[in-house]
Design a binder for these strands. Structure first.
Lengths: 234, 234
DNA sequence: GCAAAAGTGTTTAGCGTACACCCATGT
DNA sequence: ACATGGGTGTACGCTAAACACTTTTGC
């Protein structure tokens, strides 16, 4: 079915947002917030947070604003994912969506705003979503799991300081497999991007672990990608 | 300077095209075709091939069509690169460009159409281009050089059959360093994606090398990325 | 036979994995 | 003291890099 010849192509920005939340057994797994569509087309279906691109707003800023308005949070990591533009991905009008993906701090996400039209769901067991949004989230998951293996982004789920065990739990949750604590420690230290804070986390009935901080200035030239900012727009 | 409030955001598709051509010393290096802008803004400057997105055309098809109209060629590899949408990247109007990158067969590119408004230039020593196109090509180069190291795309510069020496020359030209022929051979064979044709390339004053063919069906599930097609749209 | 590139064999170094073991704290 | 996770040491296996060596052609 051809589109109306006078309908202009519309440009939207959407964001796939990831945070870690405990599942029913208490182990952290990936969750993502969705919004309920309140108008046609696809009214009532859950969809990615997003909206039309304002003429004077940067793409990345639009993604961050969307994130903030649906979760109340600021992204700790934000990157362009892909642009989806199939002619038939939305009925009636041609819609090209520039999609971003974001990581937010998990303990903040636990207290994130939610309402009747915002719902967090486990990213690996999605319901049927509006448009091609299932496919988009699956692609974002693929990218996240790939990128965690070679880029230092896992700390974006955590706060300013963290223990190596906490960091390892993030990797294990994202990659869905357990990692050797001893080797994990050495790999992280060898990367040269962790700085000891000098403090330890006390209170547990065992040896108190050191607290680390991610060193943003230690990113080497080889590993740096174009267009990557230290602080995403908010 | 704010944009006119009634000017809609426009959507364009551009393509960074790479082929290998001999430099002055005869060694293959990366070249890319540019088109001269014949209207304002930036009239007279060289720019990436591209144009406005037709309402009923797929993004990838638009990229392939652009490629064909400027070079007369069909892409052997075509992938979305990034979407550039900075508010001020084009004067007067907000333009969001979905940029693709493509690899074309080098011996075909040698006979490619060129005219007063199409020029091939070495990709590593670009003149000053229109808009942000210098930055776009530099990013495409970065992506190409990264991806060649972990994905099997180098054969896209070659014809149906090729020798391991020819394939190695592609890698050397893209990565700008020489590779050990013995180890290169073993790595390629070990990848399991090359098939012997049973033929050899005769005529040179030395032992005739075997001819190989790239086996598209041998791509494993682990290495496959979403949205990758065997045959790009043309 | 000789030159030159194709193709094979072998050694070494680095790195990730597996796992044994010691350390430090709260109870 | 002891249980528990933090943290260290070490051996193994795989792979890439380096390079010596053999093979096969045209001249």
């Amino acid at each position: 079915m051809p589109l109306a010849h006078d309908a202009p192509t519309r440009l939207a920005v959407s964001t796939v947002i990831f945070a870690l939340r405990p599942d029913s057994v208490g182990r952290p797994v990936l969750w993502t917030p969705l919004v309920r569509r309140t108008r046609e087309p696809q009214r009532g279906f859950w969809a990615l947070p997003g909206g039309w691109l304002p003429p004077n707003e940067e793409l990345e800023v639009a993604a961050a604003r969307t994130l903030r308005s649906t979760t109340g949070l600021a992204p700790k990591y934000l990157e362009q994912l892909y642009t989806f533009g199939e002619v038939d991905r939305s009925p009636e009008a041609r819609v090209v969506s520039v999609v971003y993906w974001a990581l937010v701090q998990s303990d903040e996400a636990a207290r994130a705003t939610a309402g009747p039209n915002v719902r967090w769901v486990p990213a690996d067991t999605l319901p049927e979503l509006a448009f091609d949004h299932n496919r988009i989230i699956e692609y974002a998951l693929w990218r996240l799991r790939n990128k965690v293996e070679y880029a230092q982004i896992a700390h974006s789920f955590l706060g300013e300081t963290f223990t190596l065990a906490e960091l390892r739990e993030v990797y294990e949750a994202v990659l869905q497999r357990s990692l050797d604590p001893a080797n994990f420690r050495r790999q992280m230290i060898a990367s040269g991007r962790l700085r000891e804070t000098g403090e330890r986390l006390a209170g547990a009935p065992h040896r108190p672990p050191k607290l680390y901080r991610y060193d943003t200035s230690a990113a080497t030239a080889e590993s740096r990608e174009p267009f990557m900012r230290e602080r995403p727009a908010s």
